[in-house]
């Protein structure tokens, strides 16, 4: 097996989308898979605190469904990962989950911009302005001025 082939198979397997390459123990790979998913989950929990709380005991299972489906990309792939998860849960049937996803996404959008296309620079510092509504714990209008250090106001509405 060529190095290219071995690396492709290993990457797919570690992402939970393929069997272990020949010659590698499936249990060992499984442990590595769990460890990688746990790392992604911890990073997402830090970036999506409201969603983590709103999902409660279902957080782990929800993240697992997302992790096997989505392949984060770019320099800040943990931000891309969290962004994608929050976006997919925007229309969750439980209103508190959808609301938490929306507000966490606003928090991410205050700091970052996300390109539609995957790539190294998909996630970048936000330099443009932002006007958004946050709904928890109280309704706030969030205003961010342009510039990478643009001032932010939280206005009660």
């Amino acid at each position: 097996m060529s190095l290219d082939d071995l690396q492709r198979r290993l990457a797919l397997s570690l992402a939970g989308r393929g069997p272990a390459p020949a010659g590698l123990d499936e249990n060992t790979l499984d442990r590595a898979r769990h460890s990688l998913e746990a790392k992604r989950r911890r990073a997402a929990a830090t970036l999506l605190p409201r969603l983590r709380t709103a999902l409660g005991e279902t957080w782990g299972a929800s993240f697992h469904d997302h992790a096997v489906r989505y392949n984060p990309t770019g320099l800040l792939h943990h931000v891309d990962d969290a962004w994608e998860l929050a976006e997919t849960l925007l229309h969750h049937p439980a209103p508190q989950v959808a609301c938490a996803a929306h507000d966490d996404l606003v928090s991410l959008r205050l700091r970052f911009e996300r390109d539609r296309r995957p790539g190294a620079l998909r996630i970048r510092e936000r330099t443009g302005p932002l006007l958004a509504l946050m709904r928890t714990p109280t309704r706030l209008l969030v205003v961010k001025m342009p510039g990478s250090d643009g001032k932010v106001w939280y206005l009660k509405v």
């Binding site: 290993l10 990457a11 570690l14 992402a15 990688l36 790392k39 392949n71 984060p72």
Partner: peptide
Amino acid sequence: RAGGVEIGHLAPLPFTREA
């Protein structure tokens, strides 16, 4: 990364001349 998949961690290389 390989084959369009970002592993999210450092993965080892095989101990080979090709590597």
